[in-house]
Amino acid sequence: MSEFLQFLLTGITTGAIYGLIALGFNVLYNATDLINFAQGEFVMLGGLGFYTLGVVLGWPLGLSFAAAVAAVSLLGLLLERVALRPVKKPEPLPLIIITVGASIFLRGVAMRLWGKDPYSVPGLTASAEPVKVFGAAVMPQSLWIVGIVVAFMVGLHLFGKRTLTGKAMEACAIHRNAAWILGIPSDRMVLLAFAFSAGLGAVGGVIIAPITMCSYDMGTMLGLKGFCAAMLGGLGSHWGAAVGGVLLGVLESLAVGYFSSGIKDAVAFLVLLGILFVRPAGLLGASAVKRF
């Protein structure tokens, strides 16, 4: 029993991260119909930026957290302005390849700046003593992760429902042209979405780094899993991202626990395929998604 609980809690921790990254995909998808394959690189840059500010420069952890996330958000803006805005006839596939190019470019930059070695990053609380929950051990950082992810979920939800900007963004997500006709500056909403989604990725990077270490090539796999979680939950649905992330994390963890680690990914993706066959738009997704 405690074994099962351990697998479950482990799965929820990784799942929360997947969910956060999936959320980043969703925010952007809602505003632009675009899947950003450089999302994983924002996660990596968040983690490495946090390392540089917090460990190398010795800034207070809270400040380095905020600064790293802000810097990566700016980078998200820059990506939109420099690489995606100038495309004359934006069609999904070329845009996707641009983001693939951007992810390779950012990985190359990170390799130059931080080198190829992984780095260890301190947790948000100094204590390294695990907390015992019914015989299963949980690290304090895991609690931080789950807490922060839940906070962002709720925050994003409230932002969308309670603030004018948030409502404007939701309107853009529903129908960009209609929103534009109603006087919503949809261009600026797109920019905001880019900053948000990059920032969410960076938050993921900062909070996962103490558990996994961070290195210039950590982003690819995390981005992939986040994408997977977003699809599993239903593209564009924020709560779907959370559900998809946790489901994926728990599935992986149980697959490792009861089968073997090698086939973990296969199990996770088989379940994904199964769900997609039954519900081709994900668990909580709207029925139709644009084709390209």
Partner: peptide, 16 residues
């Protein structure tokens, strides 16, 4: 037991 090169958590294997 085994783990993948990109895995971020090995508690499940260690529990076993």
């Amino acid at each position: 037991e085994a783990y993948g090169a990109n895995d971020t958590d090995m508690t499940a294997q260690l529990t076993k």
